[in-house]
Design a protein around this nucleic acid. Structure first.
Length: 223
DNA sequence: CACCAGGCAAGTA
DNA sequence: TACTTGCATGGT
């Protein structure tokens, strides 16, 4: 069943078109799993370059640890992550996540990430400031679970190529990948990164698809 | 100058 | 339930 279905073959074809065109993306950038969590929070509706500046600020004075982050006042944290934008909300959200790990997993990140995936996802979603994309980013890129991350690019590209309705839900998009591809975190990791790369470079809001690697894929109609 | 970026929550009707 | 708005810096 899995990837031998028509849809499964099509999705794998998409993956290989993108991989051949753009090459390996090497996601998620970050030296530690804690940095991946921080990046996941900070990159919400924000360019990654700005997130890097914010993380650099955090690393500047001292090594990043859960304890140190939690000891910072929200205001201090906010100033450090300023370049990432929305710094007041994001400082609060980051603290909420740290608090969640402190309370439920005794401040032990490894214990947290070793949690059973469905349970961890529910827990993450209960944190104010974590929605489906951020939760799934943590599950895939920090915990290594075969969970597909859906974002605005995924929605736009798949909808433009008539693989899904324009008003498709997050869940519907996620199922398109997870129900038709093998449960492989390495595949999901690269695939999501490639979709973001495609969205940035060739599949913009204003169509610019002369160089789109997916021109001959799907059932193109709205480019 | 306008527009966009690897979302989410809260407010409104 | 279904829209709309606030959050904010930095690059193109």
């Amino acid at each position: 069943m899995i990837s031998s279905t028509s849809t499964g073959r099509k999705m794998m074809a998409m993956f290989h078109l993108l991989l051949d065109h753009f090459g390996h993306q090497g996601w998620w950038p970050g030296e530690t799993r804690l940095e991946i969590l921080i990046g996941a929070m900070l990159t919400q509706n924000t360019n990654w370059a700005n997130v890097e500046k914010a993380i650099k600020n955090l690393k500047e004075s001292e090594e990043i640890s859960l304890e140190r982050l939690y000891s910072l006042k929200q205001e201090e944290l906010a100033q450090a992550i300023r370049p990432a934008g929305y710094f007041n909300v994001k400082a609060r959200r980051l603290r909420n996540l740290i608090h969640f790990i402190m309370e439920r997993y005794h401040g032990n990140l490894s214990e947290c990430l070793a949690e059973e995936p469905d349970l961890l996802r529910k827990g993450l979603l209960s944190v104010n400031g974590i929605g489906p994309e951020t939760a799934d980013t943590i599950l895939l890129y920090a915990a290594g679970h075969p969970i597909f991350v859906v974002d605005a690019y995924t929605h736009r590209i798949l909808s433009r190529h008539n693989m899904i309705e324009e008003d498709a839900s997050y869940e519907a998009l996620q199922s398109l990948f997870m129900e038709h591809l093998p449960d492989d975190p390495v595949l999901f990791n690269e695939f999501h990164a490639l979709i973001v790369r495609t969205g940035k470079e060739t599949c913009h809001k204003k169509p610019l698809c002369d160089s789109c690697p997916l021109l001959e894929w799907g059932t193109l109609s709205r480019h």
